[in-house]
Computed example of a mutant assay.
Amino acid sequence: MSASDHTILLENVTFTYPGTDIGVHDVSLGIRAGELLAVIGPSGCGKSTLLKIIAGFVQPSRGRVIIAGKDAAGIPPRERNIGIVFQSYSLFPHMTVLENVAYPLKLRGRPVAERRANALDILGRVGLKDHIDKLPAQLSGGQQQRVALARALVFDPQALLLDEPLSALDAALRVEMRDEIRRLQRAHHIATMHITHDQEEALSMADRVAVMRDGRLVQVDAPKALYAQPANRAVASFIGHANLWRGRVVDGTSVETPLGILKTAPHGFAAGEPIVVLVRPEKLAIGSAADGVNTLTGKVTRDRFLGSFRRFDFEVGGTKLLGETGNMAEIRSIHILPEAVQLLADHDGKRP
């Protein structure tokens, strides 16, 4: 990765909290201008620590943070010219909406008239121009979040960091606000890192998604590629729903599983190799295959109607499969197309 191609660039960055091995380890990652990168992973995986390193709140023990082509070592947070929106929004309760948004410009010594004009402009873009004299307590959660976004963007930052900004909102408002964030991010063509625990949020918003585990990057990819081609079992189980089994390769087009031998598309794994078998729930087809391949007979043990589709558990000889389908007919058998049977290396490294 080249610093000239990225607004934010991390080179082999390591940081651990004193007396622990918790933190981030040897992380290299770049974010280009106009790109929204979502960072996801289980609690304690290091995603918020990564944000703090970029913001300058903690200093890496090894590696470099480069912002807009310049090494950020020794540059305090205020001088990094990065907008940040926290989970709690951190609005000043005694300040009006206009005063909250204009505050970063005040810190930078901008004239009063310029502060007001710029704050009014960005508040207009987030739809809050009619609320400029209200205090944060007089606003809804969604409105407060818009104020926080406006404040983070008003000084025209080089990059934007979002630390789970939607987690305090109800489900319907989260969907609305993630579209709003994406709209503003694109309009400003700003390099953005979005920290979230919500994989649906990450997949729907991001240009690329970085998955972290135990302080390390496991995979960085476009959302569709991440879902369709996970690097290993950890990514496959974390992204979306998945049927995962340990198995063993029989030959170039079949694999032994707890369900029996399943036919696969041609693959490059060696016969006898231990393998992880992945089948996404939506890939389970109702009924028997015309040629009988990968047809399984069993019983539905749980069936959940979810509007446009149903999610069901299907038991075959003591092994449960999770399925999703828009077909509302009775289910007595299912089949899996060979190309829907994915093979992953049986370790946490990269796929062959």
Results as ranks from 00 to 15, higher is better:
Ala206Tyr: 07
Gln138Ala: 14
Arg116Thr: 15
Leu166Gly: 14
Gly142Asn: 14
His197Ser: 06
Arg178Val: 09
Val341Ala: 03
Gln342Gly: 02
Leu259Arg: 14
Leu128Arg: 06
Gln145Trp: 11
Arg213Glu: 13
Leu123Asn: 11
Ala3Pro: 14
Phe309Ser: 04
Leu160Met: 06
Glu164Met: 01
His241Ile: 01
Ala236Ser: 03
Ala234Pro: 00
Leu226Asp: 13
Pro338Tyr: 05
Glu99Met: 14
Asn327Cys: 01
Leu10Met: 15
Val58Phe: 12
Pro258Glu: 03
Val126Tyr: 05
Val255His: 10
Gln144Val: 02
Ala290Val: 13
Ala234Phe: 15
Ile75Ala: 04
Pro281Phe: 09
Leu162Trp: 04
Ala234Trp: 13
Ala270Phe: 00
Leu50Phe: 10
Ala210Gln: 08
Ile54Val: 15
Gly56Trp: 05
Gly323Thr: 01
Val13Phe: 07
Ala242Arg: 05
His131Arg: 15
Ile54Thr: 13
Thr14Asn: 10
Asp71His: 00
Gln59Leu: 09
Ile122Thr: 14
Lys106Tyr: 06
Gln143Glu: 11
Glu164Val: 01
Ile8Gly: 12
Arg310Trp: 02
Asn118Gln: 12
Gly41Gln: 06
Arg280Glu: 11
Ser90Val: 13
Arg216Ala: 10
Ala345Glu: 07
Cys45Arg: 12
Leu98Gly: 11
Val277Met: 07
Arg32Gly: 02
Asn118Trp: 00
Glu180Pro: 01
Arg178Tyr: 08
Gln138Ile: 04
Gly260His: 04
Val249His: 09
Ser88Lys: 08
Thr319Ser: 15
Glu176Ser: 07
Lys283Gly: 00
Pro338Thr: 06
Ala340Asn: 13
Ile67Pro: 12
Ser254Ala: 15
Arg186Lys: 14
Leu226Tyr: 02
Gln145His: 11
Ala289Gln: 09
Val276Glu: 14
Leu107His: 05
Ala150Gly: 09
Gly141Met: 09
Val58Ile: 15
Pro136Asp: 10
Val218Gly: 00
Ala234Gln: 14
Ala38Val: 02
Glu176Asn: 12
Ile82His: 05
Ile331Asp: 07
Met177Gln: 06
His267Pro: 10
Ser88Gln: 13
Pro157Glu: 08
Asn12Ile: 00
Thr297Met: 06
Gly260Lys: 12
Pro230Cys: 03
Lys47Tyr: 07
Gly56Glu: 09
Ser4Gln: 15
Pro352Arg: 14
Leu135Glu: 05
Gly240Tyr: 05
Thr264Asn: 05
Ala271Asp: 10
Pro42Gly: 11
Glu282Val: 01
Lys47Cys: 07
His6Thr: 10
Ser43Met: 03
Leu36Ser: 04
Arg248Glu: 14
Arg178Glu: 11
Asn100Glu: 00
Leu203Phe: 02
Leu51Asn: 09
Glu330Arg: 07
Asp26Tyr: 00
Pro266Cys: 01
Gln229Glu: 15
Ile40Pro: 03
Asn243Pro: 02
Leu343Asp: 12
Ile239Glu: 08
Ala231Pro: 09
Arg304Gly: 00
Arg280Tyr: 03
Gln158Pro: 00
Ile75Cys: 07
Leu120Lys: 03
His131Asn: 05
Thr325Ile: 00
Ser48Asp: 09
Arg233Ala: 12
Gly141Val: 03
Pro266Lys: 12
His347Met: 00
Ile181Phe: 15
Leu51Lys: 11
Val27Pro: 06
Ala159His: 09
Lys283Met: 04
Asn81Gly: 11
Phe312Ala: 08
Ile336Thr: 07
Gly44Lys: 03
Val65Met: 07
Val126Ala: 09
Thr297Asn: 08
